[in-house]
Design a binder for these strands. Structure first.
Length: 551
RNA sequence: GCCCCCGUAGCUCAGCAGGAUAGAGCAACGGUUUCCUAAACCGUAGGUCACAUGUUCGAAUCAUGUCGGGGGCGCCA
């Protein structure tokens, strides 16, 4: 909003000076150094050449016009040709008023222009409890959903259930073995590819309590089918429960089994055949993906007649396109980037727009406890699950720690730190700022110095550097949200709110906020911290973290 | 061999659609409480932004290459 104002002022000035703009995309920045003003632009550096001027000369011409505006305390040329703006205090006041008026809607916008966005995340195999990578995906996807919604996109959350295919058969067989064990059978060698986790034993016990030995009277085929459906259903419920506990919801659960029943695999295959990019070789059906940028051709139908995982994957993505999304975001784990070349090839082959598909890769997580890396082995069934983690550090800390890092970076998760209730732990530091403000407001209310309405004359009392800096920080909030909804990086919000909380704590310890001796000044400050509280609360809400009023 | 991610303070990491003097937290050291929540604050110290070349008014940021770390490359999913 302020930025737009500056841009239009600049363009006016350019016109009135009879100058030209070669590169219209100048930057309007908030300089790190306060001496460089509140905002700064490089317009003259970018466009001096075309006007046959030196950057500083062009900047001076513009400044001559701009400094007549009332919104700026000063407009100056600096360095190699930057133009630095200092805002008039009245502008700060009007910004603060706007923040307060917007309340919990501050920062929301129509920036996304109602673009329909499909966000697919977690999509863990239904063969076991959710692990920490799924937890990271859940925190990431859910926050991105809320942020994009807040920024005017129309996002849609989807979980793809891989409930068909080979690994599901292995799941059924694993359960069968545990079930037979329960009935006294000795299993000498539990196959290495089977699922070894304790949860399979629990499922066997549960199944046994429901069915007893009835299952042995069925044919093997029927029994395995029963095992499979039972395991899938139970594990799916387990996963949903974990996600609910974590505060993560989905708009749709897409079942591969169901899609297969609807004949969507055959449909996908026939589309590819129609596009003339399949062929047979050695009893298998191949996709000529090299025609579309892949490094080698891929098998679609194995020589045993079964489809590879690629077919349902392509079929699923066809549905994503058919459902009319403008943006399709796949949040994938660290071991999936090899899929994408094949998938993209298929999308090109079928003439869908590959630019609509965006892949976000989440990287690995290493858990550390007491400085030691926690060793996990999926094979031996020794993994830390999402439930373990939540039980250990709590939802708030877990979500914050997952969001604090950019998705593409490996994440070292310090369990000890996440459990700490001190300023070392950033999530407490932020929540504490919120609680502290709540407490001050409560006290001010009791002492009857809490203002009931806004008065610009009162707000003008805010003129300390720290106060203006905080307003400036809050002023950038909508921009931060818009940018991160564009680049899909919620970690920027975590960083932002941490900074804001820090600014508040420092401000608090330096200045008395609610002081009955100075009513007007106190009221102005109470307005200021109310605004801070709102911005912190909004940020935490978007990250799925609670904002306590008392700690 | 090919592909993806990472390399910034002792540690964990921000900053990267190019901008002015590179930031924060932790750890280290030294301080702050008759005062609205000390779950806080202040101060000190700490850097060849892995390296090289290029692009330009300007590079931690972009490009190419090198080195180092992590992960991935089946008619498994």
């Amino acid at each position: 909003m302020i930025k737009n104002k500056i841009i239009s002022n600049l363009k006016e000035a350019v016109n009135s000076c009879d100058l030209e703009l070669e590169k219209a995309e100048m930057s309007i920045e908030i300089p790190h150094n306060l001496e460089h003003g509140d905002f700064s632009t490089n317009i003259a550096l970018l466009n001096a050449k075309i006007n046959n001027l030196k950057p500083r000369e062009m900047a001076e011409k513009l400044v001559a016009v701009l400094s007549k505006k009332r919104d700026y305390k000063s407009v100056e040329v600096a360095g190699p040709g930057f133009i630095n703006f200092k805002l008039a205090n009245s502008l700060y006041v009007s910004i603060l008023e706007e923040i307060l008026k917007s309340g919990m809607n501050y920062g929301s916008s129509d920036y996304g222009k109602g673009k329909k966005v499909l966000l697919e995340f977690v999509s863990a195999n239904p063969t076991g409890p959710l692990n920490v990578v799924s937890a990271r995906a859940a925190a990431f996807g859910d926050s991105l959903y809320h942020i994009m919604k807040f920024c005017g996109f129309e996002p849609f959350r989807e979980f793809y259930i891989n409930d068909a295919g080979n690994q599901v058969d292995i799941l059924a067989e694993s359960l069968e073995l545990r079930y037979r064990e329960l009935h006294g059978e000795r299993i000498d060698e539990f196959p290495p590819e089977a699922y070894h986790g304790e949860y399979i034993k629990d499922l066997a016990i549960l199944l046994n309590s429901l069915e007893g030995n009835k299952l042995f009277h069925m044919t093997e085929k029927d029994r395995l089918k029963k095992m499979r459906n039972f395991a899938l259903e139970q594990i799916h419920m387990m996963q949903m429960e974990s996600l609910t506990k974590f505060g993560v919801e989905f708009d749709n659960w897409m079942s591969e089994k169901k899609m297969r029943k609807e004949g969507i695999l055959e449909e996908a295959l026939s589309y590819l055949a129609e596009a003339k990019c399949t062929y047979e070789n050695e009893d298998a059906v191949w996709f000529a993906s090299t025609k579309f940028g892949d490094i080698k051709d891929r098998v679609l139908i194995k020589s045993d007649g079964n489809p590879t995982y690629l077919v349902p994957d392509i079929a699923y993505h066809i549905t994503k396109y058919q459902r009319g999304f403008d943006v399709i975001i796949d949040v994938l784990g660290p071991d999936h980037h090899a899929h994408v070349s094949k998938l993209e090839a298929a999308i090109k082959a079928l003439n869908y727009d590959p630019a609509k598909l965006e892949i976000v890769y989440l990287q690995h997580i290493n858990l550390f406890d007491q400085g030691e890396k926690v060793k996990m082995s999926k094979r031996a069934g020794k993994i830390v699950t999402m439930d373990d983690l939540i039980a250990e550090v709590g939802c708030d800390a877990a979500r914050y720690f997952f969001l604090d890092r950019k998705p593409s970076a490996h994440l070292n998760f310090d369990l000890e730190l996440a459990k700490k209730k001190s300023s070392e732990n950033p999530v407490y530091y932020i929540q504490y700022a919120h609680a502290r403000i709540s407490s001050i407001l409560k006290k001010a209310k009791k002492e009857k110095i809490l203002p009931t309405k806004m008065d610009p004359k009162v707000l003008k009392k805010l003129n300390k550097t720290a106060e203006l800096a905080i307003i400036k920080k809050m002023m950038s909030f909508p921009d931060v949200l818009n940018t991160l909804s564009d680049v899909r990086e919620p970690h920027r919000l975590a960083n932002y709110v941490f900074d804001l909380a820090g600014m508040f704590h420092k401000y608090y310890s330096k200045y008395k906020i609610a002081d009955p001796k100075h009513i007007e000044l106190s009221q102005a400050r109470l307005h200021l911290i109310t605004a801070i509280k709102n911005v912190i609360a909004i940020s935490l809400q978007l990250m799925g973290i609670s904002a306590p009023t008392k700690m």
